[in-house]
Lab assay of single mutants.
Amino acid sequence: THFTSQQLQELEATFQRNHYPDMSTREEIAVWTNLTEARVRVWFKNRRAKWR
């Protein structure tokens, strides 16, 4: 999946605040970024792996 810079900005900003967002937070992010909750969940999983 290719993310727009706007989507990445929103995802990264949320990641800085919370590395493990809950389901409702992921659903909110999905609405803001026009992505599915599953895409958001996978992005956070991959981002945490990169962060370690």
Results as ranks from 00 to 15, higher is better:
T1W: 14
T25V: 08
V31D: 09
R47Y: 02
Q16K: 09
H2Y: 12
I29F: 03
E12V: 04
L8W: 11
W51R: 05
Q7F: 04
T33A: 07
N46D: 10
F15A: 03
S24G: 09
F15Q: 01
L8M: 07
T4C: 06
L11P: 01
T33G: 03
Q9K: 12
L35Y: 02
R26W: 05
T14A: 15
T33D: 01
S24T: 11
K45I: 14
E12Y: 04
W43T: 00
T36G: 04
Q16T: 08
F15E: 01
E10I: 15
E37R: 03
E10V: 15
R26A: 03
H2T: 10
P21C: 05
Q9E: 11
Q7M: 07
E10F: 15
S24N: 11
W32S: 15
D22T: 10
W51T: 07
R17Q: 10
V31P: 00
H19R: 12
N46T: 09
W43E: 00
N18T: 08
F15D: 01
E12K: 03
R48H: 05
Q9C: 14
F44Y: 07
A49G: 06
D22W: 03
R39M: 15
S24D: 08
R17P: 01
A30H: 02
A13D: 08
E10N: 09
S24M: 10
T14H: 15
R39Y: 09
P21Y: 03
T4N: 07
F3K: 04
Q7P: 01
M23Q: 12
L35P: 00
K45W: 08
A30T: 02
V31T: 11
N46A: 11
T33V: 11
M23N: 06
F3T: 04
S5A: 13
L11R: 00
R48S: 02
H2C: 14
N34A: 07
M23K: 15
T25Y: 07
M23F: 14
R41W: 06
T4Q: 04
H19M: 13
H2W: 12
E37H: 04
T1F: 14
R52Q: 09
R52Y: 10
T1A: 11
T36F: 04
M23A: 10
D22H: 05
T14K: 10
V40A: 00
N34E: 08
R26G: 01
Q6Y: 13
E27S: 10
T36L: 04
H2P: 12
T1Q: 11
S5I: 13
W43D: 00
T1N: 11
S24Q: 14
V42A: 14
Q6E: 12
D22G: 06
F44C: 00
F15T: 03
N34I: 04
R17E: 08
T4K: 04
T25G: 05
A38D: 10
E12T: 02
H19F: 06
L8P: 01
H19E: 03
H2N: 09
H19P: 14
S5D: 12
F3H: 04
E28D: 09
V31G: 10
W32V: 15
E10S: 13
R52K: 11
T25A: 12
H2V: 10
E37G: 03
I29G: 01
W32E: 12
T36K: 03
E12L: 04
P21K: 01
M23C: 07
I29V: 06
V42G: 09
L35Q: 07
T4H: 04
D22E: 04
E37I: 06
L35S: 13
F44A: 00
R39N: 10
Y20M: 05
K50S: 09
I29K: 01
R41Q: 07
S24V: 13
V40Q: 00
Q7W: 05
E37M: 05
L35E: 03
R47K: 05
N46L: 12
V42D: 14
W51V: 07
A38G: 08
Q6R: 11
L8N: 06
T4W: 05
H2S: 12
R26E: 01
K50D: 07
Q7A: 06
W51S: 07
A13I: 10
N46E: 13
F15V: 01
T36E: 06
A38F: 13
F44L: 02
N34D: 10
T33Q: 07
K50H: 09
R48K: 02
R26S: 02
K45N: 07
S24L: 11
Q16G: 07
T1D: 11
M23L: 14
W51C: 13
S5K: 13
E27Q: 14
W51E: 13
A30Y: 03
R41D: 08
H2K: 12
V40Y: 01
T25W: 06
V42P: 00
W51K: 06
K45C: 12
Q7T: 06
T1K: 13
L35C: 07
R17V: 10
M23T: 08
R17K: 13
K45V: 12
F15I: 00
N34H: 09
E37S: 05
R41N: 08
L8R: 06
R41S: 09
R17N: 09
K50W: 08
A38C: 10
Q6V: 10
R47D: 01
H2R: 13
T36Q: 04
S24E: 12
R39L: 15
P21N: 01
R17T: 09
D22L: 04
L11G: 01
L8I: 11
R52D: 07
F15K: 01
T25N: 05
Q16D: 06
Q6G: 08
W32M: 15
D22K: 06
L11E: 01
T4F: 04
E27F: 11
L11A: 01
A49N: 08
P21G: 03
I29L: 12
